[in-house]
């Protein structure tokens, strides 16, 4: 599974990760997002400076990828057809808190179709399924941490929380960095969407600037004319302490 050693000349890093700034993240218990009530731990988390079990993590090479993996317009479509909706490119850089690009990192995406409907047997929204849209895509970042995907802009959808709660248009994403402690799942929103600030899930994040960092910017310089508009979306993972300041990792 790992060919990351050959991916880069950089020496793999072995330092512990920076402490997570929990004031930027949603707390576990957020009653306005009702499902969190019975699913939130109530006791304090036990703080643990990283051991090798958290510093290391699985790494995925470009060799796992198929040709259309980062093209959600076509990766589920019948040959010659494509998904319905506003064609967009989402591109950006995966960085860590030190501003360093994170190469060779797997990012997985999932989303509703242009009408706001998911391809899932538990989906209850009446909007139509698009026979040419599956809703998943993935990419591995390049040497500098860059990535891009092609998709359609997802629709907003209603969900059973409040009687009239709707999610803003969003793309879910999951990221592996270089250590298991960096594991992260979040959601991307789109510039200019008035639904963002009404959403109980967005509002689980206590910090306004942290929400703004989840909003992708429309970038008219990066469009493909007569084809797709572009949104820029950078993602930041936890940084890590330099192992040169640490005692040597003992053991073997």
């Amino acid at each position: 599974m790992t060919d990351a050693k050959t991916l880069s000349n950089r020496r793999p890093e072995t330092g512990a990760f920076f402490q997570r700034d929990r004031a930027m993240h949603p707390p576990a218990y957020t009653p306005s997002y009702k499902t969190s009530v019975l699913r939130s731990p109530q006791k304090a988390l036990l703080s643990l400076d990283n051991t090798l079990s958290e510093i290391t993590g699985p790494v995925f090479g470009h060799n796992i990828l198929g040709e259309l993996d980062n093209d959600m317009i076509h990766n589920f479509a019948k040959p010659g057809e494509s998904a319905i909706g506003e064609r967009i490119i989402v591109y950006g850089r995966l960085l860590d808190e030190r501003g360093k690009g994170v190469p060779g990192a797997l990012i997985e995406f999932w989303q509703a179709n242009a009408g706001g409907r998911y391809r899932h047997k538990k989906e209850g929204y009446i909007a139509a399924l698009d026979p040419n849209f599956g809703g998943c895509g993935r990419v591995v970042t390049d040497e500098d941490g860059n990535y891009w995907i092609r998709t359609i802009k997802p629709g907003a959808y209603p969900w059973p929380n409040g009687p009239n709660d709707w999610r803003p248009a969003h793309i879910h994403f999951s990221i592996f960095g270089h250590g298991f402690a960096q594991r992260l799942i979040s959601q991307l929103y789109f510039e200019g969407d008035p639904m963002i600030w009404k959403c109980p899930i967005v509002r689980t994040i206590p910090d306004r600037a942290a929400v703004e960092r989840l909003v992708a910017a429309l970038d008219m310089e990066a469009t493909i004319p007569m084809d797709s508009r572009a949104y820029k979306f950078d993602i930041v993972l936890r940084g890590r302490r330099s192992s040169m300041f640490e005692n040597r990792m003992e053991g073997n």
Binding site: S186, I201, L214
Partner: peptide
């Protein structure tokens, strides 16, 4: 320093 991207469910 940058700030880690906030988590969402």
């Amino acid at each position: 320093r940058l700030k880690e991207t906030a988590s969402q469910t």
